[in-house]
């Protein structure tokens, strides 16, 4: 009787939808994994071995990781004070800034990269003179790197801004700021020792999303001629079958590890902020 009662209460429909959803995400991944192992039945991880042996893989992978880290740091420097100031002093500007941060969803990356190339492929001169004060950024490697990081920052902005803004919503920014000010803290101390530690999970989730976007990005890197991981994977897919599958699976795995890290860190902070 008890068993029947429990059975009646079991949420079959909810579980059915969950399983369908899980299959939708897991099946392609399993298929990719299975395919990546099928190159040589005698050496199951041959595709992985080959992929990791390729020096271009490491070069592009490291380059993308470096770009990702620089983009994350630059985004934090730009977004945290902006979101903080808007919450603190300019709440009326919030809608405008939110609209601006949504622009990367509306403007495709291809338009962005052509815009960047068009604007920064000619030297900048002081108006009404021929004096060049900045070389065309597309003409030298460091300049292109600056451009690609700037482009990545634009692409990552919606994720980073929203993460930070949501993080700030969970703590009473205004009162904490005033409390710190009354204790003699400067703006720098307030941001670095009071605000940042209290939004660290939001920062981490924004950072990991930015990381995922930068590492997998193809269009900006291709058009700016940067040897990043995205174009490498794309090119590899054009000529090889098994290695791209192996690297795709590795990418998925890295993303999942990153998401697990978010869960771990967020869980810890929820407890810290919970009693506030």
């Amino acid at each position: 009787m008890k068993f029947l009662n429990r059975l009646r209460k079991f949420p079959f429909l909810a579980w059915l939808w969950f399983l369908l959803g899980a299959l939708y995400f897991v099946l392609p991944l399993l298929a990719t994994f299975e395919f990546s192992l099928s190159w040589d039945p005698a050496v199951p991880f041959k595709a992985y071995q080959r992929a990791f042996e390729d020096v271009r893989f490491w070069r592009s992978f490291i380059a993308s990781n470096v770009f990702a880290v620089i983009t994350i740091i630059a985004c934090i420097i730009l977004v945290v004070p902006t979101a903080y100031w808007i919450r603190l002093r300019l709440p009326q500007a919030r809608r405008i800034v939110e609209f601006i941060t949504l622009m990367p969803f509306v403007v495709p990356a291809i338009i962005l990269v052509f815009g960047l190339i068009r604007v920064y492929s000619t030297p900048f001169t002081i108006p009404f003179t021929n004096i060049v004060f900045m070389q065309a950024l597309t003409q030298f490697k460091a300049g292109t790197n600056i451009l690609i990081v700037a482009g990545y920052m634009v692409l990552a902005m919606p994720y980073m801004y929203r993460s930070v803004d949501t993080g700030m919503r969970t703590v009473d920014i205004l009162t904490l700021t005033e409390a710190a000010q009354s204790l003699g803290a400067s703006w720098f101390v307030i941001i670095t020792r009071v605000i940042l530690p209290n939004i660290r999970s939001a920062l981490l989730s924004g950072a990991l999303l930015t990381f995922a976007i930068v590492v997998g990005e193809v269009i900006l890197a291709s058009f700016l001629g940067v040897n990043a991981f995205g174009p490498y994977l794309f090119l590899l897919g054009q000529h090889r079958a098994y290695e791209p599958a192996a690297l795709s699976f590795v990418s998925f795995l890295l993303t999942w590890i990153a998401m697990g890290m978010i869960q771990l860190v967020t869980g810890g902070q929820n407890q810290t902020a919970g009693g506030h």
């Binding site: 009162t175 904490l176 005033e178 000010q181 204790l183 803290a185 209290n198």
Partner: peptide, 29 residues
């Protein structure tokens, strides 16, 4: 500026820094 006045303030919502312990909160200033 508020941080130049040497005035202590207590708020209705306590305004303790959630990332710091009791001792760290007291020692912050």
């Amino acid at each position: 500026a508020p941080n130049q006045r040497n005035v202590g303030m207590i708020f209705q919502s306590y305004a303790l820094f959630p990332n710091m312990t009791v001792a760290q909160n007291i020692g912050f200033g």
